[in-house]
Amino acid sequence: MLSLLQIELYKIYRRPRTYIAFTAITAIVLIFQFAFKSDGQSYMNLMLQNVQDNFELDKSKAINGYFMCYIILNTLLVQVPILVALIAGDAISGEANMGTLRLLVTKPYSRTQLLVVKFFASFIFTILLLVWMAILALFLSLLLFGVDDMLIFRVKGEESQILQITQDDIMWRYFAAFGYATIALTVIASLGILLSVYAENSIGPIVATVCIVLFFTIVSNINVPIIDKNIKPWLFTSYLVGWKGFFYIGVNPEGQPIKGSLENWASIRNSLYILLAHIGVFLGMAVYSFQKKDILS
């Protein structure tokens, strides 16, 4: 199994398509950093225009490495599923399209082993993508913008909030958030692999995965009570942005932030369970379908 995994990773490493994802992330992060370095204050003024009468804030310190990473993650974690779909959606269908699937299946491994290895290869790719994102969005931002307390702008119900997290209470939240994002993106990877089992070219499952994610994301963002109650809990996309929960700091009865706390750990934990269940279901369906599939390509 380990040598199979090494082979899969080697194939991913040697495919030019792999580097599209890393290049896209690099370009987007660098553009963000350049834009905020050049004119970050305008963004800050816009964000603070509704609350600056109520808070005393040093705006020059608000734009720092931690804040930049949060802004970048907010944007990128919507786009990264597309990049994960590029690899996962190609896992089986790409082999079928190249004509190599029939060679793989005639090797002395079970189909379950082949598919599980493909899944782990996509999982490792997802981790590497997020590590690369962390290096650029967090560590490079810290180098470029410095370290300070972080301000989080949040709309909760009808009201806008600003949460302040002290600099010595931030890093663990980022590690937890990246860990959560890995699980969330692995759901996309397992969906991509499931769809790739049914196709004989890569485009179909990649586009289908992206379309499903986009469609569900749009539905997840419709704030109508009937959808909130009856549909959103069933959509995995409702839980993709659950990483933000690690930055919603708990407050005491006086409204003061409690260092090292989370506002709603139970909600984050439940979201993780739901995401893990999705991975299990998608992967189980993929294994079952792949075992039954006649390889005609």
Binding site: R14, M98, L103
Partner: peptide, 27 residues
């Protein structure tokens, strides 16, 4: 060992790398 219709291997790899990869796959 089998060749099934047209043997399309990994086009982005060299002949030697393809062979190495399938040898490894056979343990």
């Amino acid at each position: 060992g089998a060749v099934i219709e047209r043997p399309d291997l990994y086009k982005y790899l060299s002949a030697l790398d393809n062979l190495k990869l399938f040898a490894k796959m056979s343990g």
